[in-house]
Write a protein that binds this DNA or RNA. Structure first.
Lengths: 327, 327
DNA sequence: TTGAAAGCGATACCAT
DNA sequence: ATGGTATCGCTTTCAA
C-alpha cells in the first residue's frame, strides 16, 4: 500500500508538499501540484485515514449510541444523521445497546477512546455522572429523544402530542376516552399523561381514571391493557394509545370481542410507524428524520460549549388523521 | 487527556512496560503490573484507539455497507453482526448507500482508507472490478444476500423459498396461482421464478403465464401488479407475492374489489416482515439474523483467502404458515 | 523483566 | 513555494 512518502519520492518532492496538495493548500505551484497529482494517480494512492486522524486529532466520524429496541424511531433518526454525515463526508460509528450494561461501558469508553469526534445519543437516558464528564471532556454530545439539563438535547413535546390526540377525539364528540399509556417510569408516559389531562380540562370535561391504564409500549402491552379495561367493565367509545403498537394490540383484542374500528370504536396511536399508514391508523407523528439531521448538523457545525441555560430544543409532533378515527 | 507516557512516568516505568500490561503480556512482574494498574486507575487512563490502530495496523472495527432501502432485512442482519461484533469487542462502521454513486465511492475508498479491518456488504451487487480489487487487496470482504464468484458470499436459496411457497399453495388445492414477482433485473426474481415453475412441474401442472407479472418489490408494486392482472381478466384463487409488501399491496387492491383473504383468495408473501405476523400473512422467512452473525464470525475468525472454489454458503428459507392461506 | 528507541502514516511548523 | 523534521500516542523489536 502506497504511503505519502512513496508519492513524494515519485513526484520528486517532500512529503509536506504532497500533504499540501492533498489538503488543497494554496501554497503550491501549479507545476508541482500537477506532478504530485500524477504520482498519486499512478500509485493509486489514498491517505491512510487512521494516520491522518492521529495527526489531525480529528476522526471525521461521529458516533451514534442507540438502543435497538426503538427500531423504527432509531432508523428514521439514523437516516437523518446519515444524510448530513454523508454530505459533510463524515463516517458513522454505530454503538448499539442491547443490554443495559453495554450502555455503561460505551458511555465510559467512547469519550476517552476518541474514535469519534462527537456522539449522538438516541433515546437512552444519561445519568448525571456521565453528563458531567461529557460536559467537562472534549467530546461533544447531543441527545436525541432524551433530555439532560446540562447537555444539548433534542426532544419531542410529548404532552403536546398527547394533547393533540385527545383533542382530536374530544372534537369528534367522544367523551369516554380510554388512555392506554406507557409505564410511568418513562418520562414520555408522564408527559403524555399531562397532555391527555390538559386536553380534557380545556374542554371542560373530566377524564375517567377508570379508563386509564399503563402498559408496556409494545403490542402485547396494548392487548393486555385493553383486556384489563374490558374485564373491568370499561366501555369507552374511543382509545388513545401511547404507541401504535399498543393501538394495534388493542384493536386485536377488540376484534375478539366483535368491536369494530372505527365503527364502534375510534382509536389514535402514537409514532406513525409504517404499519400505521397501512392500517389506516390515526396517529401522532414525530419529526424523527429532522431530529437526526439537526442533531448531526449541530454536532458537526458548532462544537461550541453546550448552551446550558438554553434548555432543550423542543419539536412539535403532528396529528396524522386516518380512517381509525372514522374520518 | 492522559497518555501512556503519563502513566509510565507516574508508575516509574517505561512506556513499553505499560503497553505490556495493557496488552496482557506475560513478561511483566506482578509488582510492576500492580504499580502500572494503579497509575492507570488514578489517571483514569484509556488507550487512544486511533494511535493504537496506527501502531498495530488493526482498527478493531468492521465496516457494514448497506442500502437503506432494505430496511427490515438490513436491520435484522445488522443485529446479527452487532451481536458477534460486541462479543469480540469490535466496533461497527456504517456505510449507508442511499444513492447509486455512493456505492461506487465507498467501494473505492473503504479498502484504501483502511478505517476498518473487514467489510460486510449487504444486498448490494459487486461488480467484477471491485471484486478483483478486494481479492487482491488485503481487506477481507464478505457478501450477505449478494453473490460474486470470487468473494465469500452468504445467500438465501430463493428458488427454494419460492418453491416452498408455491408447493404450499398447490398442496392446498390451488391450481390457478398468480405470481407477483419482482423485476427480472434482480437475481432474486429470476431464482424465484425458477422455484415457482419447479414446484408446478413437480406437481404435474403447468403455471399459467397470464397469471405472472413482474413489479417493484414495494407495496404499490403489488397493488399495481394485482390491478394489472385483474384488468386483464385473470381470476386466480391464490397469490404468491415475491415480497410481503407486494402481498399487502395486492390485498389492498383486492379489498377494493370485494375479494376477501383468505376466504376468496389465499396469499403467500415473502420476507416475514413485522407486519406479516400482524396481518396473519403466510410468508417465507429468511435467516437474516443468522446470516449477519455468521458473516461477522467468518470475517473476524479467519482472514484466510476467500475459498474461491467453495461457492456461496446457501441458507434455506422457511415457510411460515399463517391465516392468509386459510389454515 | 524492563527501558530505550524505532516505526506506523499522516500533518504542520520552521527554515530556506 | 518547498523540504526537513518534530509530533500525534501507541506497539514492538532490541539490548541490557
Amino acid at each position: 500500500m502506497a504511503t505519502i512518502y512513496d508519492v513524494a519520492k515519485k513526484a520528486g518532492v517532500g512529503v509536506g508538499t504532497v500533504s499540501r496538495v492533498l489538503n488543497a493548500n494554496v501554497h503550491v505551484s501549479p507545476q508541482t501540484r500537477e506532478r504530485v497529482l500524477l504520482a498519486i494517480e499512478e500509485l493509486d494512492y489514498q491517505p491512510h485515514a487512521v494516520a491522518r486522524s492521529l495527526a489531525t486529532r480529528r476522526t471525521n466520524s461521529i458516533g451514534v449510541l442507540v438502543p435497538f429496541f426503538t427500531r423504527h424511531f432509531f432508523i428514521e433518526v439514523l437516516r437523518g444523521i446519515q444524510d448530513v454525515a454523508h454530505r459533510t463526508d463524515q463516517g458513522i460509528f454505530l454503538y448499539n445497546v442491547q443490554k443495559h450494561d453495554q450502555k455503561e461501558t460505551y458511555l465510559a469508553r467512547i469519550p476517552v477512546e476518541r474514535r469519534v469526534d462527537g456522539l449522538i445519543v438516541i433515546t437512552l437516558r444519561i445519568r448525571d455522572g456521565h453528563a458531567a464528564k461529557f460536559q467537562k471532556g472534549k467530546l461533544p454530545v447531543i441527545l436525541v429523544d432524551s433530555y439532560h439539563p446540562i447537555l444539548p438535547s433534542l426532544v419531542v413535546d410529548n404532552a403536546y402530542g398527547a394533547k393533540l390526540a385527545t383533542e382530536h377525539l374530544l372534537g369528534l364528540g367522544h367523551q369516554k376516552i380510554a388512555f392506554l399509556n406507557g409505564l410511568m417510569r418513562y418520562h414520555a408516559s408522564r408527559a403524555r399523561k399531562d397532555g391527555f389531562e390538559e386536553a380534557y380540562s380545556q374542554s371542560g370535561l373530566q377524564p375517567d381514571p377508570k379508563l386509564v391504564v399503563e402498559t408496556e409500549f409494545d403490542r402485547s402491552g396494548g392487548k393486555q391493557g385493553m383486556a384489563f379495561l374490558w374485564e373491568r367493565g370499561a366501555r369507552p367509545t374511543a382509545i388513545f394509545a401511547a404507541s401504535d403498537l399498543q393501538a394495534i394490540g388493542a384493536i386485536e383484542f377488540l376484534k375478539t370481542k366483535g368491536v369494530r374500528v372505527p365503527e364502534d370504536m375510534a382509536i389514535v396511536g402514537y409514532d406513525d410507524i409504517e404499519m400505521a399508514e397501512l392500517l389506516g391508523l390515526t396517529t401522532i407523528r414525530q419529526p424523527m428524520y429532522t431530529m437526526g439531521a439537526e442533531a448531526a448538523e449541530r454536532l458537526l457545525g458548532g462544537l461550541e460549549p453546550p448552551p446550558t441555560t438554553e434548555g432543550p430544543r423542543v419539536y412539535r409532533p403532528e396529528l396524522v388523521i386516518r380512517e381509525s378515527t372514522g374520518c
